[in-house]
Computed example of a mutant assay.
Amino acid sequence: MYNQIIEKFIAAQHAARQAYQDAANFEREALAGTGTAEPFFAVNVRSEYREEEELKKFCFALASNVVSRARRQFAPVGARLDIDNDAEYDRAGLDIGKALKKGEIPDLDKLWASLTAHYNGDGGAATAYRQAATRIVRTLGLHRNPEVKRSSAGVVLKKAIYTETAWNSSRRKVCYHSTQMTADCLSGLATFAGKAGNVALAKRLESIDLYRLEYSSREKLTMPGLDITLFNDKWEFKFAHDMAEALMLFVGEYGQEAMQERH
């Protein structure tokens, strides 16, 4: 399917080249005898170099779309699946530039077959859960301090946060340097919550917009099975005991490699 799309694109290039050539020929014939000469004709035929670069750009864009389809199609419902384009090209033995230089069509059907073989079924789900567990472990520092604070009300995990004063307000917001790590933390927890069957919590976590969120110190976000208390320099995640137990099981099953990290 994808190889046929490239073939159609190449055919369109050839047709366009011929159409431009016909227009250029007509212009020159129509203006014969008027004294018009190169480079004063208006119609130009695109060079082979421009067509080659256009085709190369198109093939890379289409290959990226193939990987993006895999991210969507093979991720568990509501979860994020990170797939690296270059790593998947290597796995499939795809070298777009090399294929084009040889006059061949880059085999994107083979790329899709490789992605399907690796991520279809349980492959995509297991990968997404490992990635989520890794984000949770790293952003909450579980690999550095596996002991968690337990109380009668629940289990508390903490994450350091850099904040700054919101524009034209005394309230705080997460600063640029903490945004990605915080987003990774929330994303990992949302995937865990979905896996644990707490769909309401997963949706609430996914809905937090760090670019719009403004708060006062000690403000609390209350969610099903989780309260997040927002301080100026940290966030405290208090899990209900059942959710904490489920989280530890999730990390134990999918985050063992990340837990071995000590930096």
Rank of each mutant, 00 (worst) to 15 (best):
Y2T: 00
Q4P: 02
Q4T: 13
I5Y: 07
E7M: 14
R17F: 15
Q21T: 14
D22H: 10
A23I: 01
A24W: 12
E29N: 14
L31T: 11
T36C: 15
A37S: 10
V43C: 14
V45H: 12
R50G: 09
L55V: 05
K57L: 10
K57W: 08
A61Y: 13
R71T: 08
F74R: 07
P76E: 03
D82E: 15
D82K: 14
I83T: 03
R91F: 05
R91T: 00
A92S: 11
K98L: 09
D109C: 07
L111S: 04
W112M: 06
W112F: 09
L115R: 05
A117E: 12
Y119D: 04
R130G: 01
V137P: 03
T139P: 07
E147C: 06
V148H: 02
V148S: 07
R150Y: 11
S151E: 10
S151N: 08
A153S: 14
V156T: 12
K158I: 10
I161P: 00
T163L: 03
N168V: 11
C175V: 13
Y176W: 10
S178Q: 03
A183N: 11
C185E: 01
G188F: 01
A193D: 03
K203C: 04
R204I: 01
L205W: 03
E206S: 15
D209M: 05
Y215M: 03
L226E: 02
F231V: 02
N232T: 13
F237S: 00
A240R: 09
H241N: 06
M248Q: 14
E253N: 07
Y254Q: 02
Y254W: 15
M259E: 04
